[in-house]
Simulated scan of single mutants.
Amino acid sequence: MTGSGPQRIRAVRKRRKSQWRGFFYIAPAMALVIVFFVMPVLFTGWMSLHNWPLMGAARWIGFANYTRMWNDSRFMAALNFTAYYTVIVTIAIFAIAFPLAIFVERERRFVSTYRTIIFLPVVVGLATASLLWVWLANVDSGFFGPALRALGLVERSPNIMASFDTAFATIIVMVVWKIAGFTMIILLTGLQAIPSELTEAARIDGAGRWQRFRHLTLPLMRKTIALALIVSVTGSILAFDQFYIMTSGGPQNKMISVVYYIFNQSFVSFNLGYGSALSIVLLAILVAISIVQLWLLRVGEER
């Protein structure tokens, strides 16, 4: 009994020392997050409450920038286009990445080479990839026009980027080519984490490939799919480079994404306050979407 007091004190001191050591280890990461994320977000929120021109003094206007956006038809059009693009490109990426992940998950000859080839476009910067595809689609010196003529599909090289449908399809194909390899790696990690004993037991019990995929693979990959989905949706909502470089928002300004519109308001129209308000709203949308996706994941696990 007499020794229990000093022992308890030593245990408390040891625990506190361990806690301070842990805080010391995470302090650099916390500092980076505070300096490069928290403080910019807070400053952006402060700017959004002002009429903040690029040149001149800022003027406090409260929530006027936030009320303005509800009557901004161009912002609503950009929001609708971004939502449409996000749905289409996310479906396209998963439709390509999932079969590729299944293909390279099995041990076969040259499987490492296949993985490398599929992943190579990921290391190319998005701006560089956009410039590459601008050249490929060029009506005079590109690749697509001569290829279509050689196949006898057209008599002369078409201007692919001149119409919304063909330009949008070209951007979708470029993004899938660029991103599918990264999503494939995420899904491949989930596939390799599934115990082979479970798959073999299901096969012995007579479950076919589709049954194993539906009742075994998909449920066990729920978290991996959620991660890949969040990354894909977030990246699609923040799309900017491909629209700025490949179409400049055209044709007829029909390909202006939300980030592109924020860029125009902030650095073309020099209305930094309104651009900041749009940025805060976009951040809130991203957080809400991520929360909903994680909630759906948790509900699925409870079932």
Rank of each mutant, 00 (worst) to 15 (best):
F75E: 03
I117L: 15
I160D: 03
A193G: 12
A129G: 12
I118G: 00
Q192G: 10
T113F: 12
F143Q: 09
R106H: 05
V173G: 01
F213R: 03
R212D: 02
R209P: 09
M76C: 05
F94I: 08
E155P: 00
A129K: 04
R156K: 12
A201L: 00
V173L: 15
F81E: 00
A162V: 01
G145A: 13
V123L: 14
S112W: 09
G190Q: 13
A150P: 00
L79W: 07
A193M: 15
I194R: 13
P121K: 12
I171W: 00
F110M: 14
I172Q: 01
P195T: 05
L79K: 05
A97G: 09
L131G: 09
V173A: 13
R203H: 12
I102H: 04
D165K: 12
I160H: 04
L216Q: 03
L131I: 14
R149S: 05
A207K: 06
V176I: 03
T90W: 06
A92W: 05
E200C: 01
E155K: 14
A83E: 08
T183L: 11
F75Q: 05
V124M: 03
I179S: 02
Y85C: 01
F144E: 02
G152T: 07
V122E: 00
A207H: 06
F94G: 09
S141A: 12
A167N: 03
A83W: 08
F164I: 02
A129V: 03
W135H: 07
I117M: 13
F182N: 10
F81D: 00
G208E: 07
L151A: 09
L126N: 06
W135G: 04
V176Q: 01
H215N: 10
F144W: 13
S130N: 03
A147Y: 09
R214I: 00
P121E: 09
E200I: 01
T166E: 08
A101R: 11
A201V: 01
I185Y: 10
S112M: 13
I118S: 01
A92H: 04
G206C: 04
L120K: 08
F182D: 02
G142N: 13
A137W: 15
A137G: 05
A169S: 08
V175T: 11
F110I: 05
L216A: 03
A92G: 02
R108Q: 14
F94S: 10
W210V: 13
A137I: 01
D140V: 07
T199S: 13
T217G: 03
A101I: 03
G208Y: 01
I194P: 15
Y114N: 07
N138Q: 11
I96C: 15
T170P: 02
F213N: 05
A162T: 02
Y85K: 04
L126W: 09
